[in-house]
Every structure is written in structure tokens, then in C-alpha cells.
């Protein structure tokens, strides 16, 4: 998972999640490794920050439909990040539903960074707007996808539970 905890959920409206960036994550050792001219520069890859926002928006949208839909990230409408996220910092993803209907959803998102060695408060570092497609509604049964909702697997359920959020249909 690329989010650690959901800190706020207003169903079908807004979700906030945090991600602690840790040097224990292997990928930081390769992003970026030491070169002949400079030392290693471990920073959270921007692509994984986008994935964090996709998981935040995806859970928000999936939860709104009681996780019946297979919610797939279909389009990154906007992605702007202005600062690096170093190990020891905390990212905060806030996703807001802009529009949702039977076929899919559009979310707007802000990314904030808490640099524990800096100001000690969350500061905005970017905006990520996404579109999600409901797979079955757009591709139909002929596409041959399985019936069970493979998008929201155990990892998603775990983070919902550990964040104190009931899973519609399972924890009712």
C-alpha cells in the first residue's frame, strides 16, 4: 500500500490519508543512488506519490459505492508536485469527489508535506486530479473480468479496518 492510514473520510465527498516516508523502503535506495559526482539522494518517487493519491481517491470512490465497482485509475488529469518528499517526512493526500456517476468519477486532490525537521506543519506541495473508471460499467461482461472485486483486496481492507472505517457490506 502507498498510504499508511486514513485519517478522515466523509463518504462520497472527501478522504484524507497519510503516508510516512521511510528510509526502510527499499526503493528509496535506488531513487536516487550515489553517483561518481554526488552522494545518494533518497526521495519518494513522484510516480508513487501519484499512486498514493490514486489509492486515496480510489478508496473514497470505491467506498461511496460500497466497493461493488471495480474502480480503476483511468486518467491523470493534472499532476503538479513542487517539492521532494525526503525520508522522515509525512505526506498527506486529500482527495475530493468532483463528479461521480454510474460510469466513473473525477477527483481533485492536494498533496501536503510535513517535514518534521522543518516548519513542523503540513505545507502544500502539489495538486493531483484523477479520473476513475468503473470497469464493469464501461467494459461489460464481454471483457471477461472476474466477478469478485479484485481491485479492493486484503491490503485495502486492512487499511480501512486499521483506520477504524467499517467496510460496507462486510462490517455492517
Amino acid at each position: 500500500m502507498w498510504i499508511d492510514r486514513i485519517t478522515e473520510l466523509v463518504p462520497a465527498e472527501r478522504m484524507v490519508a497519510i503516508k510516512n516516508v521511510s528510509l526502510a523502503e527499499d526503493h528509496l535506495h535506488d531513487h536516487f543512488p550515489r553517483t561518481e559526482t554526488r552522494g545518494a539522494l533518497p526521495v519518494m518517487p513522484a510516480s508513487l506519490i501519484l499512486e498514493g493519491m490514486a489509492q486515496t481517491g480510489g478508496v473514497l470512490v470505491g467506498h461511496a459505492g460500497a466497493f461493488r465497482e471495480k474502480v480503476i485509475l483511468a486518467k491523470i488529469s493534472k499532476a503538479e508536485l513542487t517539492r521532494e518528499a525526503m525520508p522522515g517526512s509525512t505526506l498527506r493526500y486529500t482527495a475530493t469527489v468532483q463528479r461521480m456517476d454510474s460510469r466513473g468519477a473525477a477527483t481533485m486532490g492536494t498533496v501536503d508535506l510535513l517535514d518534521h525537521a522543518g516548519s513542523g506543519t503540513f505545507e502544500p506541495i502539489g495538486e493531483v486530479n484523477l479520473m476513475f473508471s468503473f470497469l464493469d460499467q464501461n467494459m461489460g461482461a464481454a471483457a471477461g473480468f472476474p466477478d469478485h472485486n479484485f481491485v479492493f483486496g486484503d491490503a485495502f481492507k486492512t487499511i480501512l479496518r486499521t483506520s477504524g472505517i467499517a467496510i460496507p457490506g462486510e462490517d455492517d
Binding site: 483511468a74 486518467k75 479520473m131 464501461n138
Partner: peptide, 10 residues
């Protein structure tokens, strides 16, 4: 592409 039609609609 296909998702753009939904985006345009929204």
C-alpha cells in the same frame, strides 16, 4: 480515448 468521453461529459 474512451475515458476522455467521460471527462468531457463531466
Amino acid at each position: 480515448e474512451s475515458i476522455d468521453y467521460l471527462d468531457i461529459r463531466f
